Simulated scan of single mutants.
Amino acid sequence: MNTLKSHFRYNTSQRNGIFFLLLFIVFLQGIFFFVDFSSDETNAVSQNEIVAFQHEMDSLKRVELENRIPKIYPFNPNFITDFKGHQLGMGLDEIDKLLAFRAKGNYINSTKQFQETTGVNDSLLAAISPYFKFPEWTTSKNIIEKPYSKITIEKSILKKDINSVSAEDLKMINGIGEKLAKRIIDYRTKLQGFSINDQVYEVWALDKEIAGKVLQYFEVTNLPKIQKININTATFKEVLSIVYLDYELTKKIFNYKNQVAEIQSIQELKKIDGFPLDKFNRIALYLDAK
């Protein structure tokens, strides 16, 4: 018991130390309780930084949205492809009408004729027609508006048939050397001939500017005779050999064929889930259902 009491006995110096310690603790508690350590200046700076950051994020979002919108440059509507037409907002029937008109050797020479041929509505025509760029000789006031044949075009602008040019002809264009010329010829062979002018842009590693130069001198004036593949009798490997088909799409086509037993029309391919409608007209060049 004496031992226990000894632990609670303090001399005068110790009691004074304990008293001042308690007094110091109370003093510190009073400071934290009565003194405001918050800073309006700091909060104001933080708020300004947040607003500035938000404005910067909004600006970046606007730039990103603008970049996502396809930019339209002046173009000749005679050379609208299925992909280009899809980008412009044209329907499949409207694109097919244009391609059928061009396949007959005819050219569109005015905005009015474009609408009459394709059947596009007034609102779409108003949106895309400002970008139409026709050759100067078609906009002359002395020329009566009418379809011009490819022969007439060739005489006016002296373009050669791209399906008959040689590698040496291509090398005459600034920017095309032996390798690029061979690559264009090889791709033409793989396609069995160019059917659409814009197929030149598909040549691997061919710059768009150089491809545009090619089309200034050469164009499709004689459609190639493509050996079509019967989709109902062809093998998987034969269909896969088509330029515009990959393994997954070929597999989908064969799965669909197995479901329906026999494909009656190539148009049925549009019913396949995930089928690239923008490439349909190109793919249809190589397939037949009869």
Results as ranks from 00 to 15, higher is better:
180 L>F: 09
176 I>D: 04
224 P>T: 06
101 F>Y: 09
240 L>R: 14
49 E>D: 14
29 Q>H: 10
157 I>R: 12
179 K>H: 12
286 Y>G: 06
188 R>E: 03
71 K>N: 12
152 T>S: 12
52 A>E: 15
151 I>Y: 12
47 Q>R: 11
142 N>Y: 13
119 G>M: 10
167 A>T: 09
118 T>Y: 00
255 N>M: 12
111 T>D: 01
250 T>A: 04
241 S>P: 02
269 L>F: 11
278 D>N: 11
87 Q>A: 07
212 G>R: 07
274 G>K: 03
145 E>S: 14
261 A>E: 14
97 K>M: 03
217 Y>E: 08
168 E>G: 09
93 D>M: 06
289 A>L: 04
163 N>R: 11
280 F>D: 03
7 H>F: 13
68 R>N: 12
123 S>W: 06
26 V>G: 10
31 I>W: 05
105 G>H: 09
245 L>C: 03
135 P>G: 04
126 A>S: 07
72 I>K: 03
148 Y>N: 07
280 F>K: 06
36 D>W: 08
216 Q>H: 11
98 L>F: 00
226 I>C: 09
111 T>L: 00
10 Y>R: 13
88 L>R: 07
90 M>A: 02
241 S>K: 10
93 D>I: 09
112 K>E: 03
93 D>F: 06
76 N>H: 04
278 D>C: 02
88 L>G: 08
244 Y>K: 05
137 W>M: 12
277 L>W: 01
175 G>A: 13
166 S>R: 11
270 K>T: 07
184 I>S: 06
59 S>R: 15
135 P>T: 04
182 K>E: 15
5 K>F: 06
6 S>T: 05
278 D>E: 14
194 F>C: 02
109 N>V: 08
155 K>L: 13
236 F>T: 10
188 R>K: 14
4 L>V: 09
132 F>I: 00
203 V>K: 05
7 H>Q: 10
155 K>V: 09
115 Q>V: 00
61 K>G: 11
268 E>I: 01
42 T>S: 12
115 Q>D: 00
236 F>N: 08
280 F>I: 06
10 Y>D: 01
122 D>N: 00
141 K>Y: 04
1 M>Y: 10
269 L>K: 02
280 F>N: 03
165 V>P: 04
178 E>F: 08
1 M>T: 08
240 L>N: 08
51 V>Q: 13
170 L>M: 13
